[in-house]
């Protein structure tokens, strides 16, 4: 489906593009997971990617962060063509990906996990300061910093995954299903923190099954269906659209 056929709702505020994904395709063997996805994330924007299971949300994030190789299309990040770059080469360019299932290292302590987030940084003093800043965002991590990360609760692990991603000082934070398996109260805390982080200028590309939560938090949203973007629009506008309400909000 070409860009022209994507139904667009509401107005997008003016933005300077940080990430541009142009028609990427991804295959898992014979299965085509993405059939040409295009989207943009502006500087300072929070963008949500919603859709049903298997729509290609996680594959899109993975292609963006270099975990998966796109077989076609082009990804531009911060003015550079990053389509062919590998995951570890994107981190120094300002991309951080908190992957599906949180991806914490349970065999390492909480502090070691966080330090790995700053693996490439040489500014030790600034890393210390950022560490304290993140402990401010998630005080529970400070309490548990010498515990093995595997002993944390699901919510705490999600906080660790976000804090760890932030420690690389990203321009763009990719988040995969931060609400998955968490109590509503914990989810609320995490989303409140995300908005705070976003307000400091970090762009966010958020994948969520919980469309209501995601579209409420995001400036702009994309709806994925079987590997294609079928709808896009301002967060609030999508929330109010009859199609989205019917398909993703159970009305």
């Amino acid at each position: 489906m070409s860009e022209a056929q994507v139904k667009t709702l509401g107005e997008r505020r003016a933005f300077e593009p940080l990430l541009t994904v142009d028609g990427i395709k991804v295959h898992y063997g014979a299965i085509q997971a993405l059939r040409g996805v295009s989207l943009t994330v502006g500087k300072g924007e929070m963008v949500a990617l919603i859709g049903a299971n298997g729509a290609g949300k996680t594959s899109t994030l993975r292609a963006v962060s270099g975990m998966l190789k796109a077989s076609a299309g082009r990804i531009t990040f911060s003015g550079q063509d990053t389509t062919a770059l590998k995951a570890h080469q994107l981190v120094p360019r300002g991309m951080a990906h908190a992957p599906e299932g949180r991806g914490i290292f349970p065999n390492l302590s909480v502090l070691e996990n966080l330090e790995l987030g700053a693996y490439l940084r040489k500014d030790t003093a600034q890393v210390r300061a950022d560490l304290e800043k993140n402990f401010g965002l998630f005080p529970v991590l400070k309490e548990r910093r010498s515990q093995m990360a595997g002993t944390l609760s699901g919510g705490e692990q999600q906080m660790l995954a976000i804090a760890r991603a932030l420690l690389s000082r990203p321009q763009l934070l990719l988040l995969d299903e931060p609400s998955l398996g968490l109590a509503p109260q914990v989810t609320e805390t995490i989303f409140r923190t995300l908005r705070e982080v976003n307000a400091t200028g970090v762009s966010v590309l958020l994948v969520e099954q919980n469309a209501h939560l995601a579209l409420n938090a995001a400036h702009y949203g994309y709806v994925l269906e079987t590997g294609e973007v079928v709808m896009a629009g301002a967060g609030k506008a999508l929330l109010e659209s009859a199609e989205v309400r019917r398909a993703y909000l159970g009305e």
Binding site: S65, M67, A87, A96, G103, F105, L108, E115, L116
Partner: peptide
Amino acid sequence: RAMRAVSWDHRVAALMG
């Protein structure tokens, strides 16, 4: 530390740079 991270999951380790 990088070795131990790779040991757990090399794909996620790559996301740390």
